[in-house]
Nucleic acid binder design. Structure first.
Length: 573
RNA sequence: AGCGGGGUAGGGCAGCCAGGUUAGCCCGCCGGGCUCAUAACCCGGAGGUCGGAGGUUCAAAUCCUCCCCCCGCUACCA
C-alpha cells in the first residue's frame, strides 16, 4: 500500500425510474463496493460515488406517459433506488442525482470550456417530431413497419423480425409510440462535438491499459483503430435537463449521453459539499493526477466509458481520466436473456424481501460475469449458498466459536507450545490475505471469493486433524489458532460480506465496527483469555420449498412466452 | 454484414496473452472417516483429451488458417 493513496470509484448511474435487478448488482455495484471497501481497509482515501441518471429522454417520455412531470417521476423513484442500495450494504459515499443544481453547474462549466476551446459547432439534422405531443422523438419511440419485410411494430433502425438494417426515416407508416399519431420529419439545428479530432489522443490513452480486461481492451482498441471517432451531437430539445450553454441554444439541453457521464464529477462535488463538509475537497480527486479512477459498468456501457468519457475529459483538459474501466458481461436468468417487460427478471427489492443482503452479495460475487455471460439459476443459488457460504464458511465460524463458547469456558484459551502444523495454519491465514489482496487489486473478484472459501476450508481441515473434542491436551492450542483464523476470515471477507463480518466481530466480543477494520488486522492476534459471546449460526439454509416458490413466482409473472414456459416444466422446475 | 468476447468432465469455472510436470478448481455424484458444528466438516474415488477440421513444432487447451455454435457491440435508448 502506498501511503496517502487516493481512489475514486464510480458505478454506472442507474436510470431514475428503472428498478435495479440482480444483474446490475453483480455487474457494477457489488464489484465496485468490494473494491471500495477493500481500499478503505488498506488505508486509502476512497470516494465511491453514484447517483440516479435523471435527464434521459426516456424519462421525459415515461413521465408523459404517466401524466407526471419528469421531476415528479424522479422524486418518486429516487428514495426507492437509494434504499435498495443501502439495504444491500453498497457503501456509496454519496448517492446523488443528476437533477441537482450542482450537476447543472458542472455541465455548464464543462461545456462552456469546450465551447471556448473550439470543440463545438452547429449543424442541422433531421429528427422525428410528434405534432400532437409536441416533442422530438428518439428513433426508439417511433414504431412502424419494416421497409424490407413489412413486419409491424418495429422501431429504430433494425428490424427484429427479418434482421435487416435501414434508415430510421425509411420506416413505413410511422407512429408516435406515446399517442399513436403520425410524426413528421423536422429539420433542427443542433450542436456537435468535434470528437473526430480526438481519436488519436484517446488511442494514446488506451494503449498502456493492457491490464484492463481482455474484452474491454480489445474492443476499445479495435473500435478506435478501425472506425475512429465521429463528431456527435450533444444537444436535444427538451425542457428537462441541463441547459446547453451555447450562444444561440434556445430551449436546448445537453444530450443525455454527454451529460450523465459528468454526473460522476457532480456527485463528487455533491459529496464534498454535503458529506465531507468542504466544497473544495472534490478537487483533490478530479484534479489530482495521483488519484486512480475506477469506473465499474456493464458491457452495454462500454463505449461510453472507454471512449466517449475519456474523449470528453481529454477535450476539457482539467480532469483525470479513468485508470481502469471494469466491465462486466451480463447475468442471464435460467438460461434466457433478461426481459424486464416480460417479467423475466429477478429484482433486487424482491430478493431483499426474503434473503439476507450478504446471501445476495455472496451469490452475486460467485457468479459475477467477469469474462462472459453467466446464469442466475434458482437451484444454483440454493446450492451455492447452502454448500459454500453456509457449509464451508458459516459452519467453520460457527463450529469454532461454539466450541470455544461451550467447551473452553467462553474464552480464547492459552496456547501451548505450537507444533509446525499450528504455526503453518497461523501463517497460512496471512498468505490468504495476501492472495486475496492481489485478486482484488486486479479486480478479479470471483477469484478473490474463492480465496475466502479456501481459507475456511483449510481451517475446517485443520480442525478435523486436531480434533480438539477428543484431544484435550492439544485443544487449547488448536482452538487458540482457530479463533485467530476465524478473526482473519472475518477481516478479509468484510469487503464481500460486511454484515456477516460484523456479526463475527460481535460474537467474538471485539467491540469493533467493520468500518474501523484495517486490512492488516488479518494478521493480528487476539490475546488468550479474551472472552467471547454466545454465537448463533450466521445463516439460515435455503429450502427446496422456498426455491420452488420463487420459481413459481417467476413463472406466474411470465407473460406470453411459450418457449420459456415449456422449459419451466422440462428443465427449470 | 463487420468487429469483439466465449465454446474445457453432469453443472459452474481457471489455465490460453509470454506453447512443455500425470489438464487444475468449485458444486454435484460414489466410497470411507469424524461427531465440535446448520445431515454440517475431513479424506479418497469415478468422470474431460480441452466446439470441429487442418497446419506450425521435438511438443498445443495454449500459436496460425478455415468452419460451426452462443453472446454482445456497430455511436439519435443512454
Amino acid at each position: 500500500m502506498k501511503l496517502g493513496e487516493k481512489v475514486l470509484v464510480t458505478a454506472a448511474l442507474p436510470y431514475s425510474y428503472a428498478p435495479r435487478h440482480f444483474g446490475h448488482l453483480a455487474g457494477a455495484y457489488l464489484p465496485a463496493d468490494i473494491f471500495a471497501r477493500f481500499k478503505r481497509m488498506k488505508g486509502a482515501e476512497v470516494v465511491y460515488v453514484c447517483g440516479t441518471d435523471e435527464n434521459a429522454s426516456s424519462i421525459v417520455i415515461e413521465a408523459m406517459k404517466r401524466g407526471m412531470t419528469p421531476k415528479e417521476l424522479c422524486d418518486m423513484y429516487y428514495p426507492i433506488q437509494k434504499e435498495v442500495f443501502e439495504k444491500l450494504g453498497i457503501s456509496f459515499d454519496i448517492f446523488s442525482r443528476t437533477s441537482k443544481p450542482i450537476h447543472y453547474q458542472v455541465v455548464k462549466e464543462f461545456y462552456q470550456k469546450l465551447w471556448e476551446k473550439g470543440y463545438i459547432y452547429s449543424k442541422t439534422i433531421k429528427q422525428w417530431w410528434c405534432p400532437n405531443c409536441k416533442i422530438f422523438l428518439p428513433d426508439r419511440f417511433v414504431t412502424g413497419m419494416c421497409p424490407k419485410c413489412g413486419a409491424p411494430g418495429q422501431y429504430g433502425d433494425v428490424c427484429e423480425v427479418c434482421g435487416s438494417w435501414y434508415e430510421s426515416f425509411e420506416i413505413i407508416d410511422p407512429r408516435c409510440s406515446l399517442c399513436g399519431s403520425k410524426p413528421e420529419i423536422r429539420d433542427k439545428t443542433h450542436f456537435f462535438l468535434k470528437l473526430s479530432t480526438l481519436t488519436d489522443k484517446v488511442l494514446e490513452y488506451i494503449r498502456d491499459k493492457k491490464f484492463w480486461r481482455r474484452a474491454t481492451y480489445n474492443k476499445t482498441i479495435a473500435w478506435l483503430e478501425k472506425e475512429g471517432l465521429r463528431d456527435k451531437d450533444i444537444t436535444r430539445d427538451y425542457e428537462w435537463g441541463p441547459p446547453a450553454p451555447f450562444p444561440g441554444a434556445v430551449d436546448q439541453v445537453i444530450y443525455n449521453w454527454a451529460e450523465n457521464l459528468l454526473g460522476y464529477i457532480s456527485a463528487t462535488r455533491d459529496w464534498a459539499e454535503n458529506v465531507a463538509g468542504d466544497p473544495e475537497r472534490w478537487k483533490g480527486f478530479w484534479l489530482d493526477n495521483g488519484v486512480k479512477l475506477y469506473c465499474f459498468i456493464g458491457k452495454d456501457n462500454l463505449f461510453f466509458h472507454t471512449i466517449l468519457f475519456p474523449a470528453l475529459l481529454i477535450a476539457h483538459g482539467d480532469y483525470i481520466l479513468p485508470y481502469n474501466v471494469v466491465v462486466n458481461e451480463f447475468v442471464n436468468l435460467e438460461g434466457e436473456k433478461l426481459s424486464t417487460s416480460r417479467g423475466w427478471v429477478v429484482w433486487l427489492h424482491e430478493l431483499l424481501e426474503r434473503y439476507d443482503p450478504d446471501v445476495i452479495r455472496y451469490y452475486a460475487a460467485a457468479i459475477a460475469p467477469e469474462a462472459k455471460d453467466t446464469d442466475f439459476k434458482w437451484h444454483d443459488f440454493a446450492e451455492k449458498v447452502n454448500s459454500e457460504l453456509i457449509g464451508t464458511y458459516g459452519n467453520f465460524v460457527h463450529r469454532v466459536l461454539s466450541f470455544t463458547y461451550s467447551k473452553m469456558g467462553g474464552t480464547i484459551p492459552q496456547p501451548g507450545e505450537p507444533d509446525h502444523r499450528d504455526e503453518e495454519m497461523l501463517s497460512r491465514r496471512i498468505e490468504y490475505a495476501r492472495m486475496l489482496e492481489e485478486h482484488i487489486e486486479a479486480c478479479e473478484f470471483k477469484k478473490g471469493l474463492r480465496v475466502i472459501l479456501d481459507l475456511a476450508q483449510e481451517g475446517n481441515a485443520y480442525m478435523n486433524e486436531k480434533a480438539p473434542w477428543s484431544n484435550p491436551g492439544n485443544a487449547g492450542t488448536a482452538i487458540y489458532v482457530l479463533c485467530q483464523v476465524v478473526y482473519s476470515l472475518a477481516v478479509i471477507s468484510a469487503p464481500y460480506l460486511p454484515f456477516t463480518a460484523q456479526r463475527v466481530l460481535d460474537y467474538m466480543n471485539l467491540d469493533k465496527r467493520i468500518s474501523e477494520l484495517k486490512w492488516s488486522d488479518a494478521e493480528a492476534l487476539i490475546p488468550a483469555g479474551h472472552r467471547i459471546n454466545e454465537p448463533q449460526p450466521l445463516f439460515r439454509k435455503i429450502t427446496n420449498e422456498e426455491i420452488k416458490e420463487q420459481v413459481e413466482r417467476l413463472r406466474g409473472r411470465l407473460k406470453n412466452n411459450s418457449r420459456i414456459s415449456e422449459r419451466f416444466y422440462s428443465e427449470i422446475l
